[in-house]
Design a protein around this nucleic acid. Structure first.
Lengths: 118, 118
DNA sequence: CTGTTACTTATCCATATGGATAACAATCTG
DNA sequence: CAGATTGTTATCCATATGGATAAGTAACAG
């Protein structure tokens, strides 16, 4: 699960591949359609699809001479989950810091009240 | 905002860098502490920190001879947001398909009712 | 002011990545 | 069957990436 994050994030670090993912949220599509609009030779484009599939973000089946590609939901959810977790831990920590700061501020007020000319 | 996603995801595609992020959710740390535990020469490790900082995931300040590194929340949130959006679009599409399937099923039942031996 | 600590900078190296072209294979279509 | 479609495989190439070592700078500590 953790090892996959390497391939997941690497796959998403390329704009061509993110565009493919975005397109696929509209539904499955054959390779040639996905390729259309990307200014790039087909074999080069196929390597991108290969990485997406290797990362498990996408799956494909071939029928006749057409290969149809579709999104795979689970990995998106997994990566999202990792990010969310880190984000949450970080925000929680900020909250604790804020709370601490407020505590210190109150104590500081109190001290000033007891010893105004400090 | 979109251009940053390249660097964001690329930064997260390496386990050393993800480990740094995870460590930093516990709070800021000096370079040497972050480096400890990673079996890697300091300059190599510094390149990882450099990428994290270039991606905006992390910031650092130097005081005396110590550089302290801390997490930057916003980019995590941005990447998380992109993933969430794609995930949502994809799930919404699955829902539409499910609905369509159910509709077809009902129509099919209806047809069978009118023409039971089909 | 000498030594130690904590980075920094400069190179170097092997492999990975993103791109291209050329040639091949396997369907359809007429 | 002949030809066009739709991928696929095999190379090749330039640059990026992840690692290393060596040497340098900038604070402290004594």
């Amino acid at each position: 699960m953790d090892n996959n994050l390497n391939a997941f994030f690497a796959a998403l670090s390329d704009p061509t591949r993110r565009a493919v993912i975005e397109r696929l949220t509209q539904g499955p599509a054959p390779v040639s359609e996905l390729h259309g609009g990307h200014d790039m030779a087909l074999p080069s484009f196929l390597k991108h699809l290969g990485k997406l599939e290797a990362a498990g973000l996408v799956r494909s089946e071939k029928t006749g001479r057409v290969r149809t590609v579709h999104l795979e939901a689970a990995p998106l959810a997994a990566a999202e989950h990792w990010l969310h977790r880190q984000h949450r831990l970080w925000e929680r920590r900020l909250d604790r810091l804020t709370a601490l700061a407020e505590t210190l501020e109150k104590e500081s007020d109190h001290a000033r009240f007891q010893d105004p000319d400090a």
